[in-house]
């Protein structure tokens, strides 16, 4: 007799299958179909007054199919957009690296603190993340503002060395700092989840065998934590790649990223087909990164 486990549903429980239908239907309609529509829109002509032109038929009633590769060609015509993609990827890489640099000590400290304190410390990491996204950006607008204490202090220091004053607001520095600030919890949480599972006996054994703390870290803790690092890196890299609010508010003209141009195409210039092309390219870049890091993650895994 076959045991009737939860995964092996008996005929009486077949109705359970139907339960998954409503969410599946909802996501099909409001996620999968809109994505396909956007893919389709990337091959259509822009309407005269913005939006989309009809994709079949003419005004005189004759039948024709109006689809084009022009929008995609425009992406490669100049190196403007490719450069912007590259720049956004560099920003995202830099933000990810800084998140690892800042998030690692924090995650390690929490994982090695007494068990009763861990929940509270984790909550302290998540808490700023629960405050509104725009509030967190806005906080940095205050800090970087020309009349703010940070800028004035820096300029006093610069003046004593005889350098011209600088402005932090509307610079790529401001964008990167804020990107790191907003996405740091995404790095700390998966890292902590990994570090917490490490067996302390390994470190004790290494110490008994004479390894100093640097060797203990680089030979044991770091390689074991790589899956956590990869998970965190994906969680930081992808949303950063698609950010438009932070460069919009802190970046000025220098600090814009690819998502700013997407927003511009959809909202200001209302060139939806080209906006769709850029969005699909961003999707492709995001998917590529996930696949790449998944591959790297598994290769590391087999090496160990």
């Amino acid at each position: 007799m076959k045991p009737n486990t939860a995964r092996n549903v008996g005929s009486g429980d077949r109705w359970k299958r139907l339960l998954a239908l409503p969410p599946m239907g909802y996501l099909l309609i409001f996620f999968a179909i809109p994505t396909l529509i956007m893919l389709f829109a990337s091959f259509r002509y822009a309407g005269e007054y913005g939006g989309l032109a009809p994709w079949y038929g003419n005004e005189d009633g004759s039948l024709s199919i109006n689809l084009t590769l022009e929008n995609w060609q425009r992406l490669f015509e100049t190196d403007l957009y490719l450069r912007l993609f590259l720049k956004s990827i560099m920003y995202a890489l830099l933000a990810t690296l800084l998140c690892i640099l800042l998030g690692y000590p924090l995650a390690l400290m929490i994982a090695r603190s007494p068990k009763k304190h861990r929940d509270l410390l984790l909550l302290l990491v998540i808490l700023p993340f629960w405050s509104n996204f725009l509030v967190r950006i806005y906080a940095w607008m205050i800090i970087f503002s020309p009349s703010g204490a940070l800028t004035r202090m820096m300029n006093v220091l610069l003046a004593t060395v005889g350098l011209a004053p600088v402005s932090l607001m509307y610079s790529s520095t401001a964008v990167i700092v804020c990107l790191v600030y907003v996405h740091l919890p995404f790095m700390v949480l998966p890292l902590y989840a990994n570090l917490e599972k490490h067996n302390p006996a390994l470190l004790a054994a290494a110490q008994d065998l004479g390894a100093n703390r640097w060797r203990r870290f680089w030979d044991i803790t770091w390689p074991l934590s790589l899956p956590g690092v990869y998970a965190g890196a994906i969680l930081v890299f992808i949303p950063v790649l698609g950010t438009f609010a932070i460069p919009d508010l802190l970046g000025g003209t220098d600090g814009i990223m690819i998502a700013n141009v997407i927003k511009q195409q959809f909202v200001e210039s209302r060139d939806w087909p080209f906006g769709s092309v850029l969005s699909m390219a961003l999707t492709a870049a995001a998917v590529l990164v996930v696949l790449l890091s998944a591959k790297m993650g598994t290769r590391r895994g087999t090496l160990r």
Partner: peptide, 29 residues
């Protein structure tokens, strides 16, 4: 309960994608 491949893909991809993509595709829709 079920190892349907479609369901996790439909549920998890929206979480993983940058927000702006969902925003503009829903606008078009």
């Amino acid at each position: 309960h079920y190892r349907l491949k479609v369901l996790p893909a439909l549920v998890l991809t929206p979480i993983a994608m940058p927000d702006i993509l969902m925003g503009v595709s829903l606008l078009l829709f």
